[in-house]
Design a protein around this nucleic acid. Structure first.
Lengths: 342, 342
DNA sequence: TTAATTTAAACAACCGGTTGCGTAAACTTA
DNA sequence: TAAGTTTACGCAACCGGTTGTTTAAATTAA
C-alpha cells in the first residue's frame, strides 16, 4: 500500500537477473522463454502487482488501442445511447474510448479533434456540431491515415464512412401518417439550416405532401432558429400562433422542439391531438412522459453506435479501404399526440 | 494530403542540420536557442504540419495531462451535466478528460478503473455504481499516489476527497415542505439499499417526520428494488396501491422513480396533487415536462462537476494533502405536483 | 566424440519526446 | 591579446515498453 513507484519490467528483470526482453516475452507467454523462467517472472509480477505501462506500449507499438468520439452534447439521450453502443463493441475488441463534447461549438470541435489526434487515437467517430461548415480539422485525420466514421451529422464534403438514418424516409413516414389521420394543414418545425438532417427532413416533408396532392405552403415551414431545445420550439410555436397561423398538425425536427410546441399549444388552450396533432423525431424518453404521449420516430441509437464502431474497426484493421455509408431506418412510434380521436 | 507519417522532431532536426534537443527547445521558445534558428525551426514545423506526439510526451514527463471520469450512466442528465462542469475547468487547466461508464456494474467499474490506471491518468473522478461495495480497485490508486475524488456516490470506507450534496438536508426539506402543505401520511420511495444516498435520504425523511411529531410507519417506506428507473417507481407504486396503502404524499428518491409513481397514480385515477402530492430528487428536465410539473430538489450538477475537478487539481498540484469533503446543498423547487390546491 | 540443430535468453535498436551537462564559438573585459 | 563570460547548441541518457538478431548452452544426430 505504500509503493510509490510502479514496478517496471526492468525491476523484475533485475531482481531475477534476466533481461528486460525476457520479462516482456515471459509475460506474454512467448514460446522462446523456458518454463521455469516464465513462471518465476509471472510470479514476481503478481507479487509486485505489475501493470504494463500503456503509454510505453502505445509509443512502441504506434497504436493506442483507443478510439475517440466527439459528440455535440452528452446530455442528450440520443447521443449517450449511441456512445453506449460504441463502447459495447469497442471494449469487446480491446479498445478504449475517449469521449469528448464539442458543446455544439465549431471552435471547441477543432480543439478536441486536434487533442485526440495528438493523443494518437487509432480512429475517430464523430457527429459534428451544428456550427461546423469547415472540415479541415477532420481532413488532417485523412492525411495521416487515421480512419473516421461520421454518424448522424456528417461533413458533406468528405469521402468517409458514415452511419445515418434515413431522414428523408423518416420525415416522409411521419407526414404520411399525419395525412392518413386526416390532417391537411401540416406544419414543419425545422432545425438549424446548416445541418443535413434539417434539409433531408424538409425534403421528406415536402415530398410527402406532394405525394398526397397537398400544396406546399411556405408559411407552414417554421424556422426554430439555431437551437434544437424545448425553448426554441416554444418560442417558434408562439410566434406562429401570433401570426395567426393555425395548422392541424405539426411535424417537428426533434422531440425537444415538439415538446416545446406542445407546451405552447396547451398554454394557448389548443387541444392535442384533436385540434393539432404532433409528431417528433428521436423518441427520447420524455416522449413517453408528456401528455399526451408524443408520437415520434425511433432512431436506433444503440445500433447506430454499434454500426459506427464496426465500420471503424473494419477500417483500422485494414479490411475496408473504401468508405462505406450505412443508412438505417427510423420507425414511427405512434402515440396519443397524433392518433386522432376526432 | 498524402504524408503517411507524422513529421517528428528528428525529421525537422535532420533537415535543418541541428539536433533533436534544439528542435525541442526551439518549439517551446526556450531562451537558449538563437533567434534565427528558432524561427527556422518553427517555420519548418508549420510547413510540415508538425504536431507533438502526446504519447512520447507523456512517457518522458510521466504525466498524461489526462484525468479519468467514471460515472454509472452517461444517459442521465445529472451525470452528463456534472461531466460538463468537469470538462469546463479541466480544459482551461490543460487537461484532457476520459469518460467511462460503469453501466451500474461493479465488474465493469473494476475493468474501466484498471484501464484508466494503465493509461496513467493523472487523477480520477468517480461516482460509484450501485453494486459497488468493495473498493479495492480504487485503493490501488491511493497506493500509487494517484488522487481520487468521489462525487455524489462515495466509497464509505475510503479516506478521499469527495463532493456530495446534503442528502439528509434535502430529504428533510422535501418532507418538511409536504408536512407544511398539510400532508401527514407521507410515503418514501427509497433507492437501492447499498447506496449511501439511499440511507441519508431515509434518515432525512424519518427525522423530518419526527420533528413534526409524525410517527414513522414502516409500511410507508417503500423499496423500489435495485433500480432507479421509471419502471421501478411504477411497479412499486402499483404494488403499494394493491396492498391498500394510500398515502397523501410521496417523496421519491429520484425523479424517474417519482415519475413512474405519477404515471401509476394517474392510471389509477388518483389525482395529483389533490389526493397525493409528489416530490422528486434531482430536478431532471422531465420534471418540467410531466403533468403536473414535478417538485424536485435541484442538485447543482454543473457546480458539483466544477468542484470535483477543482479538488482533484489541487491534489494533483500538491496543494492538498489531506482529503477534503465538500457538501453542497440541494434546493427545493416547488411545482404543481406538491403545491396543494385543496 | 564431434558436428549439426534446437532451445533459451541476452543484446541493442527503436518509438518520440525531455533535459542535465558539456563545449566550441562569439563576445566582453582587462 | 589573453583570459573570462556568454551564447547557442550538441551529446547522451531516460521514460517503459517491443522485437529482430545474436549468441551461448543444451540437445540431437552422425
Amino acid at each position: 500500500m505504500t509503493e510509490y513507484k510502479d514496478a517496471t519490467m526492468l525491476d523484475i528483470a533485475r531482481e531475477l537477473k534476466v533481461s528486460k526482453s525476457t520479462v516482456s516475452r515471459a509475460l506474454k507467454d512467448h514460446p522462446s522463454i523456458g518454463k521455469k523462467t516464465r513462471q518465476a517472472i509471472q510470479d514476481l509480477a503478481k507479487k509486485y502487482n505489475y501493470h504494463p505501462n500503456n503509454i510505453a506500449y502505445s509509443l512502441s507499438k504506434k497504436s493506442t488501442k483507443t478510439i475517440g468520439v466527439i459528440v455535440p452534447m452528452l446530455s442528450h439521450y440520443y447521443f449517450s445511447t449511441v456512445i453506449s453502443g460504441i463502447e459495447e463493441l469497442a471494449y469487446k475488441s480491446g479498445y478504449k474510448v475517449i469521449i469528448c463534447q464539442s458543446a455544439e461549438s465549431y471552435e471547441r470541435e477543432v480543439i478536441v479533434s486536434q487533442a485526440l489526434l495528438s493523443s494518437k487515437v487509432d480512429g475517430l467517430i464523430v457527429s459534428i456540431s451544428r456550427e461546423t461548415v469547415n472540415s479541415d480539422h477532420f481532413k488532417v485525420y485523412q492525411s495521416k491515415n487515421v480512419p473516421i466514421v461520421f454518424f448522424d451529422r456528417v461533413c458533406a464534403d468528405m469521402e468517409v464512412s458514415s452511419v445515418t438514418i434515413d431522414d428523408y424516409q423518416g420525415a416522409f413516414t411521419a407526414v404520411e401518417h399525419l395525412i392518413r389521420e386526416g390532417r391537411r394543414k401540416i406544419a414543419h418545425f425545422a432545425g438549424p439550416p446548416l445541418l443535413q438532417i434539417t434539409q433531408k427532413r424538409i425534403e421528406g416533408y415536402k415530398d410527402a405532401l406532394s405525394a398526397y396532392g397537398i400544396p406546399f405552403d411556405e408559411n407552414l415551414l417554421i424556422d426554430c432558429g439555431s437551437g434544437l431545445e424545448q425553448e426554441n420550439g416554444s418560442m417558434a410555436a408562439q410566434e406562429m400562433l401570433d401570426r395567426g397561423i393555425k395548422p392541424d398538425a405539426i411535424f417537428a425536427i426533434c422531440d425537444p422542439i415538439a415538446i416545446g410546441v406542445m407546451v405552447t399549444l396547451k398554454r394557448n388552450h389548443v387541444n392535442i391531438p384533436d385540434e393539432v396533432a404532433v409528431v417528433g423525431f428521436c423518441d427520447e424518453p420524455i416522449a413517453r412522459v408528456v401528455e399526451p404521449q408524443l408520437s415520434s420516430l425511433v432512431q436506433p441509437a444503440f445500433k447506430i453506435g454499434e454500426t459506427s464502431i464496426e465500420l471503424l474497426l473494419n477500417q483500422i484493421n485494414g479490411q475496408d479501404h473504401i468508405p462505406e455509408k450505412r443508412v438505417l431506418t427510423a420507425e414511427l412510434q405512434i402515440r396519443d399526440s397524433s392518433s386522432s380521436t376526432i
